[in-house]
Structure formats: structure tokens, C-alpha cells
């Protein structure tokens, strides 16, 4: 199973920082996501982006997580040579992360 199967996501950007949400379709999956999708795991998943640092923030009322990834966007929208200067597509990469479902 991938995150794609149980959650949705949107990416935003501030300067050279990417902010990626992770929102389970079913609120009951929130606890499992909190346990299994740590900041460290997301940092490892995106490590090829460079010297990134991942911080995770919780939105308990929304049952959702935001991952804030610094240094992820090639210098930010006015500096980056990336085709996707905002890193808008990064949410699709997060959702490809495999995850084990508890039975």
C-alpha cells in the first residue's frame, strides 16, 4: 500500500522551503500516519533533493500533518533552475511512499 491509497496532499512553498500536507481520507488513519510517517522517514524519502531538513507539524483538529522541508527548492522560485520552480509536484512524490497497513 502507498500513502496515495489512504491520504491526499497539497504542496505549497515559501522561499526555498516546501510545505507538503498529508491528510487521511478517513480520520481513523491519523494515529497510524502519525506513528508511521515521521519527519525522519520523510527526510530520507526526499534526501536526493539535497541538504534538506524536515519538520513535522500536527493539526489535531483536522487529523492531518504538514511536512516543512527547508532547502528543497533549488533556491526558491526566483532563483531555481528547476522546471517546477515552486516544487508543486512534490506532493505526488510523497504520496508514492509505501506504507504497511495494520490488519
Amino acid at each position: 500500500m502507498k500513502l496515495l491509497d489512504i491520504a491526499h496532499s497539497r504542496t505549497g512553498d515559501k522561499g526555498n522551503t516546501s510545505i507538503i500536507s498529508l491528510i487521511p481520507y478517513n480520520e481513523h488513519d491519523f494515529a497510524m500516519l502519525k506513528q508511521n510517517v515521521s519527519a525522519e522517514k520523510v527526510q530520507k524519502w526526499f534526501q536526493k533533493l539535497g541538504h534538506i531538513q524536515v519538520t513535522r507539524y500536527e493539526f489535531p483538529g483536522l487529523h492531518a500533518l504538514n511536512f516543512v522541508i527547508t532547502n528543497a527548492l533549488g533556491g526558491g522560485v526566483t532563483h531555481s533552475l528547476n522546471l517546477d520552480r515552486h516544487g508543486k509536484a512534490l506532493s505526488s512524490a510523497l504520496l508514492e511512499m509505501p506504507i504497511e497497513r495494520e490488519s
Binding site: H8, S9, R10, G12, D13, K14, T17, I19, S21, I23, T55, Y57, E58, F59, P60, G61, L62, A64, N66, V68
Partner: peptide
């Protein structure tokens, strides 16, 4: 939900000129 969380870093501290908004709850 996607829009509330969009581009929010620390949800307890969303800096604006008029207030430091808190969206965490």
C-alpha cells in the same frame, strides 16, 4: 483542509501584520 494547511509552517504561529494567527486547533 487542503487550503487551511496550504503554505502553513508552524500552525501556532502564522505571522501577519495584524496578528500572529494560530490555526493549530
Amino acid at each position: 483542509k487542503e487550503q487551511i494547511m496550504y503554505e502553513i509552517q508552524d500552525p501556532t504561529q502564522y505571522f501577519t501584520p495584524d496578528v500572529v494567527a494560530d490555526f493549530s486547533q
